[in-house]
Design a protein around this nucleic acid. Structure first.
Lengths: 352, 352
DNA sequence: TTGAAAGCGATACCAA
DNA sequence: TTGGTATCGCTTTCAA
């Protein structure tokens, strides 16, 4: 017989010092299940039972252990958020929006930073899965890292992806910014001003980069012009912004207007521009994507492609809550607006 | 007899669909304990056992459930971080630093935002406690909210507080910025330039505000001057910065130099200054606490009291890891430097 | 309405 | 070294 011998009835079950549900039950002289019912707000609990339990809980200082709840319910009421750079104000604004919606819905946020390393993205995703998060929001460095996709594919966990486009094999909901429109407006503005050779700095090969290039291309085409412009793809950092501007401005036919595909690039770009004693809006026109605090107070004010990043976070969170409550519902896509705000940093090019 | 009757040996124990440790054990034909040992890296496991288990795990696609581990081990390998405003770049930089250290040490970060509401701070702290975080990092709105202090006092959970000073009754480690030094340098600079009536905008009654006021006071005293300067305490927002500047500049004896105790104030202050057509460094001198991306490229460049916020986060995380591993060790305090970078926004006052 | 008991998925002690 | 069992703290049938 497989059954082992019973433990001797020592009757001296050691009393755990932690204040758990059974301490409360004993204190109140009721069943353990009743305590659970009271605290989980289940129906069918008499008022006097509720009172007894609450009082006992008060006395022993009990509060439910969400770990145990989660284990039992198979639901952690938590979601993971993997970002590539928390410190980027844009990202932290997205997080802010998401956190607000999630915490209002009773979810906690497990935040992890990948530092832009695809391999770390993948590891973090797996870690969060082991923590049994109920859902995942992703703002990964790249779109096609095999390790990441493998981790994602393995689990049928609800997924929302921000500003990245994953292969169809991954079931996910998407929150996009309509980079095409905002950058398109900017490009058209520059072309109208008479610029003919634009420069565009984008990031790696991810959706925003592609959309921005497409937008500029189409802006040229709209005017029946051959889409001849400079493109630089690299890290969206100040250093890279400075380096690229330096390179372009030293070339034989420098661009007369530049679109920066990320606000961190601005500081670097402006440094180079300043060191060359160029006057923005006259010697060179400049557009930056995503607002920078002092951008409109700068001298001259910097043209900007704006978007509501907090709203992106909120939307992502709402999508995720949907996905969690209705996993079978068709996956959806939200495209949030971007808009171009022309300022003095864009002017007609000087003829040389 | 307390022992209940045994369950009939139906032998048909339903097989859970989740892939848990027992699936692996069965698949490998070993005991459940052995699987645990292999995955927790315990000593005393034969190589062949390890191989068997790992292969079986591979096949059924097993990875440990950290929830169950946490419940059993009484350790979640997670820490809670309560901040008042994630979206503030300063704060997100602190988070960045903390996350790096924590995740390197195998901890996950539960991030929550209180929006500056003391009551929310308290609720979030309790929530995190129910999630059984191993430690807590706090950057709360105020220092003396009773609900918060009650929540903190109730649990003996390791605690690190950033830039806030809680009552001695709360056991905590502290990470401070040395606001006194940086602002003191700024104030001395302004007084040397000849300014006699300074204005200082600070936040609520929290440590940084007090230190900044103390620094300015002492700077006056050093020169044997009566510390007569304007102080405004309010939200560190752009709107408040604009409003306060407006108020001060409209008063009979406006300050000739202003120290802004928070970078968000800068945008608002500059707006007011611009609208009055004042030239910074000539008509009015200005210092801002905490770096602003375009501050040094601004026209004129803005004098700034700097600090390394990422390092603050790292330090907080390290303190917390210490506190978790050695709870009995004496609580400690770190004071991280701030330093003043004078720029053109500070000049000699014009005599009117 | 209430209590008892069987898990959720792991760890750890104990005996073998 | 390995297997078996009790247990972490809770939820949830199932009977009463």
């Amino acid at each position: 017989m497989a059954m082992a011998l019973q433990r001797p009835q020592t009757k001296e079950k050691k009393i755990p010092d932690q204040t758990g549900i059974r301490q409360v039950a004993k204190r109140a002289g009721v069943g353990i299940g009743s305590v659970s019912r009271v605290f989980s707000g289940a129906a069918g609990v008499s008022d006097q039972m509720r009172a007894r339990v609450l009082r006992a809980a008060e006395i022993v200082g009990y509060s439910p252990n969400m770990l145990a709840q989660a284990l039992r319910r198979q639901k952690t009421q938590s979601v993971g958020f993997v970002v590539s750079d928390i410190a980027n104000p844009l990202v932290s604004s997205i997080i802010h929006g998401a956190e607000a919606v999630l915490s209002a819905a009773g979810y906690s946020l497990l935040l992890t930073n990948s530092g832009g390393e695809p391999a770390v993205d993948a590891r973090r995703i797996r870690l969060l899965q082991q923590r049994r998060v109920d859902g995942l929001i992703l703002l990964p460095a790249v779109e096609d890292d095999p390790a990441m996709l493998a981790a994602l594919g393995a689990s049928g966990i609800p997924l929302v992806v921000i500003d990245r486009s994953l292969p169809d094999s991954i079931e996910a909901r998407y929150v996009y910014s309509d980079h095409y429109t905002g950058v398109g407006q900017a490009a058209r503005h520059l072309l109208e001003l008479g610029h003919r050779s634009l420069g565009v700095i984008v990031g790696l090969d991810v959706r925003p980069s592609r959309e921005r290039i497409r937008a500029v291309t189409d802006a040229y085409r709209e005017r029946k012009m051959k889409p001849k412009f400079l493109v630089d793809a690299g890290p969206l950092s100040a250093e890279h912004g400075a380096a690229t501007m330096k390179r372009w401005l030293s070339a034989p036919n420098p661009p007369t207007a530049v679109i920066l595909g990320g606000n961190q690039l601005l500081v670097g770009a402006l440094e180079t521009i300043r060191s060359r004693n160029l006057r923005l809006g006259r010697d060179l026109s400049l557009v930056v994507c995503d607002d920078v605090p002092l951008g409109r107070l700068f001298d001259p004010p910097i043209s900007t492609v704006m978007r509501d990043t907090d709203l992106m976070g909120q939307t992502a969170a709402r999508f995720l809550l949907d996905a969690i409550s209705q996993p079978e519902q068709a996956a959806s896509i939200a495209v949030l607006p971007t808009w171009y705000v022309p300022r003095v940093s864009c002017g007609a090019p000087v003829t040389r």
